[in-house]
Nucleic acid binder design. Structure first.
Lengths: 346, 346
DNA sequence: TTGTACGCGTTATCAA
DNA sequence: TTGATAACGCGTACAA
């Protein structure tokens, strides 16, 4: 029996010696189509032939060639995700949620890192489109309007993540960054702080929205001026938080509370306060954003906004899969909210 | 001129209305092959025709179909990466290095999350093989011997990451986890600590190697017994570090130093000490592993082992690309070492 | 330098 | 339920 041999060496073909569906079919004594069906739609094949095919697959160590399937079926089972950063726990949590939603349905993730650049995001999307993704998950809010347009023209479903966009057509899952920034500032005001500073990094769309919420709350409280904002384009790190604390105290020494646009900056600011002997919150209140795991454990524990990152990823992926399968979503935008975690630091 | 129209609706084909290479060729008045060459090997096409093709591409908004290319050329430009976790900064740093090495060479990453499970790793590898990856990057050390074997059989190059394997054939980039664990313990001994505990989580291969190094150092110092080890399978978190500190002090109240198998655990342990009024390092020294960014900033700053994560990713990807392109590597295993960061906490 | 012919491995389609 | 045939869109091989 040379059933076991793949059809290598025959003719002048450029066969790569890989086991193909035809090899499986030959081994099982059925046609390629039956072998194909036995794997992708087993219920349409008689139990007897199905078993023979399964045995052939096992015997030959057959692996589906997805390039061929994608070419023939125009479906890739690939979903493209564009995230701004791998080193930000926020996005890796989102990624975990996406994976958990997608894995059981057999979708593969194609992840690209935009490094917070809208231009990069657009370039990467085009590169990814070459892989015929069935759908796209977008996290940048800046360029995503144009991208959504482009994707719609190509008939590729897309879901935006983290913030809620203005365009009501756009599928999206997240929460209002603006409102969250507002809520945190209101909290500080309620606790009696009046000279509240804001430090922001990265300057991505989400940070800017939070800053707007901060300004609005101050305005409403009649505390518009003077400005105590410090915004830099560098990536958020603990070290940057430590540095920005120093710079803030230099330009606004009367500051009594500091709203950090994310937890990493807050940690750095608090550590720096400790080194300088500035008591938190007695001398200076400090709060963060995102509620990363250390926030609950630091001393003082860190007041922050808990964001439903995992759930955002999970729900966004679920929504995307519905769109791919042609289900008309009942809601196009899902607001998952956020929670103020009032702790010791502010 | 109906040049502009893709060849849709003609015949009974299942054309998807997508712009194809043939459309570009027709628009430019050249053959498909010339169009193909103009994109993938521009220098082999006359400047005139090249320009016409480029214009046609722009005019039609052509996108390469990588499934078709992979099928025709047996090369996918895809590289599969299997990592144990997205939420561990160690692996996201590695990922960043991989990306920086791969992006300029036009490779796409297919990332899968094994969740620290060897079984999952094997399953995911098979799923990924369906995408015809040109190469594979492996981070688990447990199952990777079998996997390397399987990959070699299929002719797919693979590089192991993080530790240095026993099999000298296996391509790998990393450092000796065992030796690093040994070095850290020696440091504690030199500082005069004698009743050194070890807490470990996740229990992946790397943690176990570090624990072995710890034991060896104690043995050599004649301090083999009693054991002050606490190993749990849960994922490493700050919260777990806090909990394990409590459990360690319960079973070994005489402990004078604590070697945490990674920084997250160390942070939790230190925070817990602060809450209990245990001075670090005066009453209890605590050290970590990896040198994540907060380690330098905490109070006390954390003694730990700095690991070249980004470089490991970068070098591993570089080595893999060489292997893919048929370059015989001069060294099959690259040891990037590690650095002891002696700070305040131990 | 450019073009022709065909195959890559799978699934859609239609007939039996 | 099963099979024959023809795409899918591109690149290899070879000829001109």
């Amino acid at each position: 029996m040379n059933d076991m041999m793949p059809s290598a060496g025959s003719g002048k073909g450029r066969s790569r010696g890989r086991v193909t569906l035809a090899d499986v079919a030959r081994h099982a004594g059925v046609s390629s189509m039956t072998a194909s069906r036995a794997m992708s739609a087993p219920e349409t094949v008689s139990p007897e032939l199905r078993l023979r095919v399964e045995q052939a697959v096992a015997a030959l160590g057959y692996l589906l060639n997805r390039a061929a399937r994608a070419l023939a079926s125009a479906r890739s089972s690939v979903i493209t995700v564009l995230i701004p950063s791998f080193s930000n726990a926020v996005f890796t949590d989102v990624l975990a949620g996406i994976q958990d939603a997608l894995d059981p349905r057999g979708y593969q993730l194609l992840i690209s890192n935009t490094r917070y650049s809208d231009a990069e995001e657009e370039k990467l999307l085009n590169a990814n489109l070459q892989y015929n993704p069935d759908g796209v998950l977008l996290t940048g809010m800046g360029s995503s309007e144009g991208l959504h347009h482009q994707l719609r023209a190509r008939g590729i479903p897309a879901v935006s993540i983290m913030d809620l966009p203005d365009d009501p057509e756009q599928l999206a899952v997240g929460f209002s960054q603006h409102e969250a920034g507002y809520t945190m500032t209101r909290h500080l005001l309620k606790r009696g702080y009046r000279r509240i500073g804001f430090i922001g990094a990265q300057l991505d769309a989400r940070t800017l929205k939070r800053a707007e919420g901060y300004r609005q709350a101050l305005q409403e409280a009649g505390l518009g001026a003077p400005s105590r904002e410090l915004m830099v384009a560098d990536p958020s790190t603990v070290a940057l938080g430590a540095e920005l604390l120093g710079r803030m105290l230099a330009i606004a020494p009367d500051c009594d509370a500091l709203f950090c646009c994310n937890d990493d900056l807050a940690y750095g600011a608090i550590y720096q306060c400790q080194r300088r002997g500035i008591e938190v919150p007695a001398k200076l209140a400090v709060c963060g954003f995102n509620d990363l795991p250390p926030s609950a454990w630091m001393n003082p524990s860190v007041t922050t906004i808990a964001t439903p990152r995992y759930r955002i990823g999970f729900e966004a992926a679920t929504l995307l899969m519905q769109a791919i399968e042609g289900v008309e979503p009942t809601v196009r935008q899902i607001d998952l909210g956020y929670t103020l975690m009032a702790r010791e630091s502010a």
